[in-house]
Nucleic acid binder design. Sequence first.
DNA 1: TAATTTATTGAAAAAGTTTTCAAAGTAAGT
DNA 2: ACTTACTTTGAAAACTTTTTCAATAAATTA
Lengths: 337, 337
Amino acid sequence: MSVSNDGKKKVTIYSVAHEAGVSLATVSRVINDSSLVKEETRKRVEEAIVKLGYRPNAVAQGLALKKTTTIALVIPDSSFLYMGKIINGLLDVAKIYKYNIALHTTSSSISEMSEIIDNIVKSRADGVIVYNDCLTESEIAILNSFSTPMVYIGHKIKAEDACNVYVDYKKALYELTDKYIQAGYDDIVLIQDKKNPMMMDELLQGIEKGFSKHNLQFKGLIEIPEKYHNSYDYLNEYFKDNKHQLVITVRDSQAMAVLNACTENGIDIPKETDLVCVMDSRYTDMVRPRISSFFIPSYDLGALAMRVMTKMLNNDEVKEKEYQLSYIYKNKASTKI
Amino acid sequence: MSVSNDGKKKVTIYSVAHEAGVSLATVSRVINDSSLVKEETRKRVEEAIVKLGYRPNAVAQGLALKKTTTIALVIPDSSFLYMGKIINGLLDVAKIYKYNIALHTTSSSISEMSEIIDNIVKSRADGVIVYNDCLTESEIAILNSFSTPMVYIGHKIKAEDACNVYVDYKKALYELTDKYIQAGYDDIVLIQDKKNPMMMDELLQGIEKGFSKHNLQFKGLIEIPEKYHNSYDYLNEYFKDNKHQLVITVRDSQAMAVLNACTENGIDIPKETDLVCVMDSRYTDMVRPRISSFFIPSYDLGALAMRVMTKMLNNDEVKEKEYQLSYIYKNKASTKI
DNA sequence: TAATTTATTGAAAAAGTTTTCAAAGTAAGT
DNA sequence: ACTTACTTTGAAAACTTTTTCAATAAATTA
């Protein structure tokens, strides 16, 4: 006794053709809005379709047309919190163009990545969108080696000719650093975030560029010791004994840890220490003082990536390969300048 | 000039058969680990497979086998924040059983739900997992009317015979309420959360049950006026002029709003007001005082739902239709008792 | 009216796999 | 050597569409 087949006869294009007294070809034409079918016949077929409750089988269509109208989305499994808006953007655009989304998550082990790709190849997705933080060079090489249209989202990628939608974090941090050094504050630290290695890299480069502009060298990277399960705990400790002019964190939770530790130790933010959280989130506005941050157009990142993908699949000439979206620095109560 | 086809000849089961000098049937048997193929032949075929880099076409397999090894996941588009762990649980189990996930999001308009179902039917997903907050009765009726195996996740559902993995929020709130009233605190309020209507309903029922046990009637539902875009702003206002013995919120952001408003108005939490946030999140531990909350086993909800689904698809007799997971009340610094 | 064009239809091939059934090969038993 | 049984293989049908090409019907033109 099968679960899905309650004795109901399955209805295929044959049934419809039979019911309407026409051939398969005609039914197919009706389904696909082909113009070359007589109005009267179309009516008959459409009636048969509703009468039988016929739904075309997308699998068979996929086989016949050699395309699945499915886009594979590859994201790190840890990052739904930050991917939320991106995914919403992706999905909204996907819906418009009638694409389905197949969700694949990486657990940052390399063997897994080739497994995922294997899976995507097998399932014949028309395209792949990859959130490319946490990817190693070799993983990106693997990805680039296969010929399905691909869009990288989130970070600038080295691979030339790769399609890429991103925010230039390096520039963001360069500007921030420059501003602070010019104002006379050069005791700046950046809190490491192991969960976002590629972003860390970009931030670091930006800060270093800012320092070297003023003939200084940046030495303020605070690494989270291995033994700490999450950075929150360590930061809570660290800021009991340390004080800096500007603390930069990647995630809101890290910023909140710094805030808590400073508050508990009587260090006033922003009077004594400025605090900036790179990745914007609702929570940076919910603590007191509100934490200065960069607004990242996550929804747009997702939406644009998907839009570019639809163009590629449509064989519209995609001239632009790189789409750089701009951040907005939001100066809130955790910073003086 | 096609994007995906760089002049490389596509390699099918035919190519492999030809290369290995056997028939399709034999190749198919090798792919599917059928035992009835001679060791020597198997070797030859396997060599041909790696030589040509053959990957079975899952679309064609889907057509031949009448199954897609794909599960459709339906969730509200607003809730990635809370769905994150659930999705991770789902995906981990899906990976084990080699199922793919197709992601569908609802924007809470009814017409859209039947569109989504249409889509799922067309794409011939083997099963559907639905996060069932935000669903109206009629939407659930629509869902129940179609014959693909389905698992509802998150909330207890009325439809009999529906497969259901959930946490009993009603019971949780009943116990909480009872405890407070017994301790002499009956000025209890519950903050409305428009984003989680079904959960609201359950919470309300639980509280009401607690009140009626003590022959009291609950009148403490605080509704967020229409004009407020998000509840945060309103709560910030409300708690400037109001004070209660116990405030219960659904989401962390609401709890933080209450916390901020109280702090600003010199109301001490927990001395004067107790604060409980129903849905646990990392953030409830990041503010000061830490906010008491219920630990919800989100990951397990997802994992179990998927496991049950695999059983259904395997036609293992699924005796249990309802799986109730237990919450854990975490008494933290925002409550006195 | 015959010839030509155009609009509409259907038969059949193609997409890439699985699976059934029959055939062929091999080993064992008499 | 001759059945009998078992192992291994292949041919062909099935899964459900789309699409090409040819055929027919209808409309137009000469």
